[in-house]
Design a protein around this nucleic acid. Sequence first.
DNA 1: ATTAGTGTACTATTTGTATAGTACACTAAT
DNA 2: ATTAGTGTACTATACAAATAGTACACTAAT
Lengths: 123, 123
Amino acid sequence: MAELFHSSKPIYEQIAEMIKKRIIRGELTAGGKLPSVREMAIEVNVNPNTVQRTYRELETMDIVESKRGQGTFVTEDTEVIASIREEMKKEILMNFTKQMFEMGYTKEEIKQGLTEYLNRKGE
Amino acid sequence: MAELFHSSKPIYEQIAEMIKKRIIRGELTAGGKLPSVREMAIEVNVNPNTVQRTYRELETMDIVESKRGQGTFVTEDTEVIASIREEMKKEILMNFTKQMFEMGYTKEEIKQGLTEYLNRKGE
DNA sequence: ATTAGTGTACTATTTGTATAGTACACTAAT
DNA sequence: ATTAGTGTACTATACAAATAGTACACTAAT
């Protein structure tokens, strides 16, 4: 089977990223139920303990709430979700621009590079 | 001292990234000498063995050449350097756009998001 | 020849990640 | 009450990354 994850980052973090993106895209709605620890473990082909760790992390971030015997649910607090979206966007942009600056590109070159890349993708 | 590295990625890879960027920016020139394994270890506050592993990786990629008793030198092949630059740029752009798409943004929203972010940085 | 500064190799130990297996606690449905 | 499906906890094991320490091989300068 195809490898879902990169080796350079802990799998439990990568699963957390994946779930956050699903929430942000609306695939998982506020108050909605996540796959159970065991289901998710099968879905992403990983040990249940690893998924549990992911859920624990997400719970610490107030993104999900785990209810013993019932399941794990996306927070109903839409403001939390909105702020997660902004945080992720900012984080991704910051990381991207930082790396491009470190390569020596200027602001304009970065913008141009992105535009070229996106146009090329559409061909 | 400030932590130079992220915990989520092997340090030896992060050092390799750092060095590649120095080469690309021209801080380390073709044929130039890198800091010795021991010097670099002190510079980045890490064990010499970790730096050695970085140098070994870079040598495998034909980016540097290690000479016993003399030191480790940037390749003199400027084409290799040029291609590393393009690879890194593409890699960074690909990673960035992939993540933004996964968050649900469109091409135009990505461009706009970048422009806004860069403008905001200048304030 | 000696010395200092290189890269290189090796063993041992620690830490974090991930897996494997088992067991328990709670909830909802029957 | 029983059962199935939840989250949770625990021990044991394996592996990679990183550290620590030591030693060796080679080069250039003295």
